[in-house]
């Protein structure tokens, strides 16, 4: 196990970063916000981590600073974003990312400009990285099973209905957007403190596409979707590298197959397999008359 973890360390780092980015988009999307701002907050987290680690700050304090800054920035922009809907909202979040990208280019003292930042201390331990990813997955899972999760589901399906039953539409969307920003910032922290580099290629439009691919392949609205998508999207280029120049084509084919045959992604596919398996499994024993009577009484 230890050997596997050591041998696949770069892949596991990529999986972690892509998974966190996927959850960032997922959390906003579940509340009906199609957010491209993930990459912008990822950049904020990445550059802040680089500067603070080079300044000698402990990684835990750096993580706290990243969470605080991305959270505060998200709170500042939510009053504008929660007034927008549909395509306009998506465009506003894209504009936010473009703004951060241009700021990164024009602020070389802190971002390294077009070169990016190199030689940043790689201080994040593998166990800490897994803890962060698992922590986010568990939080998302718990939230979706909670009252907040029900409010978010209602909001995504029907804003008018959710408001009529008491869901504060703007506040719920704002909270989801802030959570999305904080998760994206955490992805930036993981990227920089584990790879030791952060630059313009990490926040290019290609990363936006990767985030969306993670969601589409994994299952955009299922709580485990971004994790499955992160694993597949990060692992495919590695395991298909033997195909040489066919690598990219094969990746595209895999993505297309998932999109065409399983629009609910791998999570939807596994759910379907699980449901079928449960239907086919015969009961282990016939219910006793007492048990049947008890069940009837409680229904």
């Amino acid at each position: 196990m230890t050997e596997f973890l050591a041998a696949n360390a770069p892949l596991l780092r990529s999986i972690s970063v892509l998974t966190l980015l996927g959850y960032s988009v997922h959390v906003a999307l579940r509340a009906g916000v199609f957010s491209f701002a993930t990459v912008g907050f990822y950049a904020v987290g990445g550059y802040l981590t680089a500067n603070l680690l080079e300044g000698g700050l402990h990684r835990y304090l750096v993580l706290l600073a990243v969470l605080a800054l991305t959270g505060v920035l998200a709170v500042l922009v939510t009053p504008v974003l929660t007034r927008l809907r549909y395509l306009y909202l998506a465009m506003a979040t894209l504009a936010l990312t473009l703004f951060v990208q241009s700021l990164a280019q024009s602020w070389p003292t802190y971002t390294g400009g077009a070169q990016g930042l190199f030689g940043i201390p790689r201080v994040l331990l593998q166990g800490e990285m897994f803890t962060l990813v698992i922590g986010v997955v568990v939080l998302v899972w718990l939230t979706q099973r909670s009252a907040a999760g029900r409010s978010i589901a209602a909001l995504r399906h029907d804003e008018v209905l959710s408001a009529s039953v008491g869901v504060d539409v703007r506040a719920t969307q704002a909270r989801a957007f802030v959570a999305s920003a904080v998760i994206a910032g955490t992805a930036g922290f993981v990227q920089t403190s584990s790879f030791g580099v952060f630059g313009p290629t990490d926040i290019s439009f290609g990363v936006v596409v990767s985030c969306l691919t993670v969601l589409v392949v994994g299952g955009a609205l299922h709580w485990v979707g971004p994790l499955l998508g992160g694993v597949l999207v990060a692992a495919l280029p590695v395991y298909l590298s033997a195909a040489g120049s066919w690598n990219l084509i094969l990746q595209a084919v895999v993505v297309l197959v998932v999109v065409v045959y399983r629009p609910d992604g791998l999570a939807g596919f596994f759910s379907w397999v699980w449901r079928r398996a449960r239907r086919r499994t015969p009961p282990t024993s016939a219910p006793t008359p007492t048990a049947a009577a008890t069940e009837g009484a409680t229904r």
Binding site: A147, R150, S151, A153, A154, H157, D158, V160, L161, S164, V165, G166, V167
Partner: peptide, 25 residues
Amino acid sequence: VRTFQGIRLIPELSVRDNVRLAAEQ
């Protein structure tokens, strides 16, 4: 509180969760 002319239930929630959604706000 109101109900609507067309049925507006949340498909991914069970009957109980549809009702609980309103109760817990």
